[in-house]
Amino acid sequence: AQVHVDGVTYDFDNPEEAEKFAREMAKRKGGTVEVKNDQWHVE
């Protein structure tokens, strides 16, 4: 699973880890999390 944050792509073998990371980053940035094509996007 991939997580996109500020133009940087992070690869995770485990989708749950990807989701956890995406939500944590969004919380830190005060942003939102979107899922597109099985990829997490932190805005």
Rank of each mutant, 00 (worst) to 15 (best):
D11E: 13
Q2E: 05
G7A: 03
D11H: 14
R23L: 11
G30W: 04
V42M: 03
E17I: 06
Y10N: 00
A18M: 01
E43D: 10
D13V: 11
V35I: 13
E17H: 06
D13R: 08
N37W: 06
E43V: 15
K27L: 13
Y10F: 10
V8N: 07
V3P: 00
N14H: 09
D6Y: 08
M25P: 01
K20I: 10
F12E: 00
K36Q: 10
Q39V: 15
H41K: 06
K27Q: 13
D13G: 07
V33E: 04
D38T: 06
A1K: 12
D11R: 13
E24Q: 06
M25F: 06
P15W: 13
Q39F: 05
R23C: 14
A22G: 02
N37L: 06
E19A: 07
V5N: 02
V33Q: 04
G7Y: 03
D6F: 11
A26I: 07
F21M: 01
E19S: 04
T32P: 02
R23E: 10
V5C: 15
H4G: 01
F21L: 01
G7V: 01
F21W: 09
E17M: 06
V5W: 05
E19T: 02
E24A: 08
K27W: 11
D6H: 07
A22R: 04
V42P: 05
G30F: 05
E34Y: 15
D6G: 09
E19D: 07
N37G: 14
G31M: 10
A18V: 01
Q2M: 09
K29D: 08
A26K: 02
R28N: 11
W40P: 04
A18D: 00
P15E: 10
R23A: 09
Q39M: 14
D11F: 15
A22C: 07
D6W: 05
T9F: 07
D6P: 01
N14L: 08
A18Y: 02
E16M: 11
K36C: 14
D6A: 07
K29T: 15
R23P: 00
K20P: 00
R28I: 15
E24P: 00
A22M: 02
E43H: 15
V3H: 01
A26H: 03
G31L: 06
M25A: 09
M25K: 02
G7Q: 03
K27P: 01
V5S: 06
G30M: 03
A18G: 02
A18E: 00
V35L: 14
A22L: 04
V8S: 06
R23I: 12
K29R: 10
T9A: 07
A22W: 02
W40Y: 12
E34V: 15
H4M: 10
R23Y: 14
V33L: 10
K36S: 10
K36W: 11
V3E: 00
D11P: 08
E34D: 09
V35E: 06
Q2V: 11
A26Q: 07
K29H: 14
V33N: 02
D38A: 10
K36D: 08
D6N: 09
A18R: 02
G31I: 04
R28M: 15
K20S: 11
Y10V: 02
V33M: 05
F12W: 01
T9R: 12
A18S: 01
A26Y: 02
G30E: 08
N14R: 07
A22H: 01
A1M: 13
A22K: 02
G31P: 03
V42G: 04
R23V: 12
T32I: 11
Q39N: 07
V5L: 09
V3K: 00
E16F: 11
